[in-house]
Design a binder for these strands. Sequence first.
DNA 1: CTTCTGACA
DNA 2: TGTCAGCA
Length: 121
Amino acid sequence: MQNNIPRHLAIFPISFVEEITNLTARQIRYYEEQDLIHPVRNKGKQRIFSLNDLERLLEIKSLIDQRVNIAGIKAILSSREQEQNAVAKDEFAQAFSKKELEDIVHGGSIALNSACSKRRT
DNA sequence: CTTCTGACA
DNA sequence: TGTCAGCA
């Protein structure tokens, strides 16, 4: 079971993304230009995508197929992100006791790695 | 050879 | 959005 690639780890070239999403490189670059996605760049200035970028592009693809314009996609994606952050924030707070949270913010005994590993996926 | 940016018959 | 040029 070594199928745990960090979702934010950028490792895919645009050619791979084109095959998986069925989007053209032109479209992918355009969506980045519209701030719908923010793939990382390597030293050669080439875009490198993560699983998060892939999923995001698939959603954009879906919305495009439904004839949603860029503005609409931005609104939908950003609002959904806010919901996610709200949920994540809530789960994080519930995963630790009040003392643990205090120790974390006060640089206590609980390490950041420990904090991350304690979160649910 | 692959990707990138800029431009437009 | 497609596609071609000229680089890296």
